[in-house]
Design a protein around this nucleic acid. Structure first.
Lengths: 215, 215
DNA sequence: TAGATTGTTAATCGATTAACAATC
DNA sequence: TAGATTGTTAATCGATTAACAATC
């Protein structure tokens, strides 16, 4: 029997835990990019709150890129991580819900830095539609499906009240959006090929509460 | 040799992964509390996007509370989870940073529902200090240390720009705050007895980007 | 009793850490 | 060569899932 081994240097998929840490390494590398050229796993570890072994293990999944006895070239490594995360290509981001949170998200700086491009913000209230946030005018959510392709929306953020979140998600998914960041405290049904991440304030507070209760 | 076993029914500490799921169960139970008295692990699972075995396993860590062949009493279970999470007692929450995000957080409803009480919001800019958000006047962050005990602040939220976040965290920690929710893209040094959780928009987007790149 | 559903034990899986060989 | 640091293999740990006994 002959086994044909896969020798591509960047593996098709990384452990999910590693993926979640890569952005932190990338941020550290961005920070030091001006001042140093080479960093050790120890330095990356200190700068990103992870152990040095963990850093090396994570980076090894990307394919070896350091030099033994020396460290990692900052620019090379940053590019490698950025490539693995897919942030070398541009992603159009749309926010749905132009309340306090939606507005905060729209004004958030440090998006653009890494491949993310805020292309539209939506609401349904007559009062908000048409108003400007930064240099984006709030559009009616009914327009989302036709806008999606034209504006190149590939990531949708849900910043609506809980009641509306599920419907918004369904429209996004039907429109072909495959990545959703949901800030509403609502379960979005799993759909094949669609990644939904949730940022949930109430949950975070309750986890903190648990830890307070423990000690 | 005599081993003295610990027989308290609620264990001192739960697996961290379970803790993170408990708030979702609690939310589902709150939703159905009016309409049904008893739920099965299957229903909880459907309502919170987790498998039924997982639900039963998690709940078993809290000490058995269901009835075989029947299910879980909604009120009893909700109380039990709330107790384990420590949300039966009230927690004072303070926000530092009264920009877009801080304002969004301050206006966030559904805090109060579960033991969390927004008690103060801080900033350092002369323009904002004194202004009102809802019924809280923005206070100068210099006052934080003296306010902490008086206002009963036990959870601090950092919604400042990245540059200020670390210093704010240090002040909080020195003041004796033991639970911090950090929205700034900055590492907070680990301090014994202090739990820091981070909500990081840029990381979330990069994780979504990774999944987009995969498929 | 039969059907339903919990709660637990054992098996599997994945992630972290330890140890160390490779090599600059 | 000696010192430093990576990258990998093996060991450990923790979390999830499967199987099933307990019991309403």
């Amino acid at each position: 029997m002959i086994a044909i081994s896969n020798v591509s240097s960047v593996p098709r998929s990384l452990p999910t835990a590693s993926v979640a840490r890569l952005p932190r390494y990338l941020r550290y590398l961005d920070q030091v990019a001006g001042s140093i050229d080479v960093v050790s796993s120890e330095e990356i570890a200190d700068g990103s709150g992870v152990s040095a072994v963990q850093v090396r293990k994570d980076l090894s999944f990307l394919g070896a890129s350091g030099t033994r006895g020396v460290g990692y070239d900052v620019a090379t490594l940053a590019e490698r991580i950025a490539k693995a995360l897919g942030v070398l290509t541009q992603h159009g981001v749309a926010i749905v819900g132009a309340g306090n949170l939606g507005t905060a998200l729209a004004n958030y700086q440090g998006f653009a830095s890494r491949g993310f491009d805020m292309v539209a913000i939506y609401d349904v209230s007559k009062r908000s539609v048409g108003k400007k946030i930064g240099d984006l005018a709030i559009r009616h959510f009914d327009q989302f499906p036709e806008d999606a392709a034209e504006f190149g929306i590939s990531i949708g953020m849900i910043a609506t009240p809980a009641e509306a979140a599920r419907d918004v998600a369904m429209v996004m998914i039907e429109t072909g959006i495959r990545a959703i960041l949901n800030f509403a405290p609502v379960e979005i049904p799993l759909v094949d090929g669609v990644t939904v991440r949730r940022v949930d304030l109430a949950t975070e507070l309750q986890i903190l509460s648990y830890h307070l209760a423990q000690s």
